[in-house]
Simulated scan of single mutants.
Amino acid sequence: MFRDGYQTTGCYNLDCPGFVHTSNSIALDVALSPVSTYHGAQHEIILQIFKDPKQNVWWLQHGNDDVIGYWPASLFTDLADSASLIEWGGEIINNAQDGQHTTTQMGSGHFAEEQAGGASYFKNLQVVDQSNTLVPPGDITTVAEKPNCYNIVSGKSDDAGDYFYFGGPGRNPNCP
């Protein structure tokens, strides 16, 4: 999590101070398995982040039952009571020293247009409203800062709810 848009803070996983890991069955900072295969078996995980106003913490939950841990609300400048912006997606760090874009892949390494079986995805996106009910997020805006390197395609369907496909190979002939 990052508390100020990476201006002076920013870290990943358990490198961020303050997260309280409460699960005995789910470890953090380890590889997930099984993994999806290109145009083969696809595997999904369900994650939820929600505010518990009684304990004043933001919980991280896997599936319907497995609470992984929490962040105290006091860690965040803008998340004292609720979130005003929610973002889903992928991110890479471009630290190539040769003036070219990194070869780091995002997601499966395939562009969003490949969709199911090819690209990575988020589906059935939902947010918790003021009455503590899961609802669709409303208007979704997509951003791809380097669309020739990585891109995104969003949509809505009866089966997948609000969704988006995303990813890309990084450096390629159109992304030097």
Results as ranks from 00 to 15, higher is better:
2 F>A: 13
3 R>M: 09
4 D>Q: 05
5 G>Y: 04
5 G>D: 08
7 Q>C: 10
7 Q>D: 14
9 T>R: 12
10 G>S: 11
12 Y>M: 14
14 L>S: 15
18 G>V: 13
25 S>K: 11
25 S>Y: 08
31 A>H: 10
31 A>R: 13
33 S>V: 07
38 Y>L: 15
39 H>L: 14
40 G>Q: 07
42 Q>H: 11
43 H>K: 14
44 E>C: 07
45 I>Q: 07
45 I>W: 03
47 L>V: 15
47 L>M: 15
50 F>D: 11
51 K>L: 14
51 K>G: 11
54 K>H: 14
54 K>W: 14
56 N>T: 15
56 N>I: 12
58 W>T: 12
59 W>A: 13
61 Q>P: 03
61 Q>D: 01
64 N>R: 02
66 D>S: 12
69 G>C: 14
70 Y>L: 13
70 Y>Q: 13
71 W>Y: 09
71 W>L: 03
72 P>T: 01
72 P>N: 06
75 L>S: 07
76 F>A: 02
77 T>W: 01
80 A>D: 10
81 D>W: 00
82 S>E: 09
85 L>D: 06
86 I>N: 04
86 I>V: 09
88 W>M: 09
89 G>C: 01
95 N>W: 03
95 N>D: 08
96 A>R: 04
98 D>V: 04
105 Q>E: 08
105 Q>Y: 08
107 G>S: 01
107 G>A: 05
108 S>P: 02
109 G>P: 05
112 A>S: 04
115 Q>I: 00
116 A>I: 09
117 G>E: 01
119 A>Q: 04
120 S>W: 04
121 Y>H: 07
123 K>D: 08
125 L>R: 01
128 V>F: 01
129 D>A: 14
129 D>I: 06
130 Q>R: 06
132 N>G: 10
134 L>S: 00
135 V>P: 03
136 P>A: 12
136 P>M: 11
138 G>R: 07
139 D>K: 02
141 T>G: 00
141 T>E: 01
142 T>M: 01
146 K>I: 03
149 C>T: 00
151 N>Q: 05
156 K>S: 11
164 F>D: 03
164 F>V: 10
165 Y>G: 10
166 F>T: 10
166 F>H: 03
167 G>P: 02
175 C>A: 10
